[in-house]
């Protein structure tokens, strides 16, 4: 099974000029791979709001791709956001990093861990392109295709759960992040 970091390394190799919105565990890894003003580390956050935030960016900036790195816990808190996103034809790329647990609270399992078919949920919401990857080879094979063209796109990435992770912090204060992002989007 691939690691969270390996998933993001592949993303770093295929990301173009899209905004990348990170949440929770991804905030600890992505700054080691990228330092673009188009990176927005959504922390402190409201859990489950990463995808709505990314969709809002897409709607405000038509044509601008937005990649949202979200977790299984956050996604489960806000499954309706997939239905909302499916109403729009926008380049929104939702990468679900599924480790089956709440990593920063001690590794407790999420509800129905390992049994929920997130791809089926996304397809049921009528997200037009849905991918699922249980291995690094599968993710590498579809990364370029999945991160291009119109969407929304949903990529379910099953990763190894890692215990002992602490709540990450953003490399920059929120106000600085917002200013950087807005400047880059002008």
């Amino acid at each position: 099974m691939m690691t969270h970091r390996e998933v993001l390394e592949v993303l770093a190799a295929h990301r173009n000029d899209q905004v990348v919105v990170t949440t929770m565990g991804s905030v600890a890894i992505w700054p080691k791979l990228s330092d673009s003003p188009l990176d927005f580390h959504y922390i402190p956050s409201s859990m489950g709001q990463g995808v709505p935030l990314g969709l809002g960016l897409c709607l405000a900036k038509p044509g601008r791709g937005v990649i949202v790195l979200t977790g299984d816990g956050g996604t489960l808190m806000n499954l309706g956001c997939l239905v909302t996103a499916a109403q729009f034809s926008v380049p929104l790329y939702i990468l679900l990093i599924d480790n089956g647990l709440y990593e920063v609270t001690g590794g407790q399992a999420v509800a129905n861990a390992g049994r929920t078919d997130f791809a089926a949920v996304a397809r049921g919401a009528k997200i037009p392109r849905v991918y699922e990857c249980a291995s690094l080879a599968e993710w590498k094979a579809i990364a370029s295709e999945s991160l291009s063209g119109n969407g929304p796109v949903f990529v379910w990435l099953m990763v190894k759960g890692e215990l002992g992770q602490s709540t990450p912090t953003s490399p920059r204060p929120m106000s600085e992040q917002i200013n950087r992002l807005r400047e880059a989007l002008k």
Partner: peptide
């Protein structure tokens, strides 16, 4: 939207994008 908390997150993205 489907639920009100989602409306708030979505509005945040719109504001970040200048809307």
């Amino acid at each position: 939207v489907c639920r009100e908390g989602e409306a708030i997150g979505l509005a945040a993205g719109l504001m970040l994008g200048g809307a």
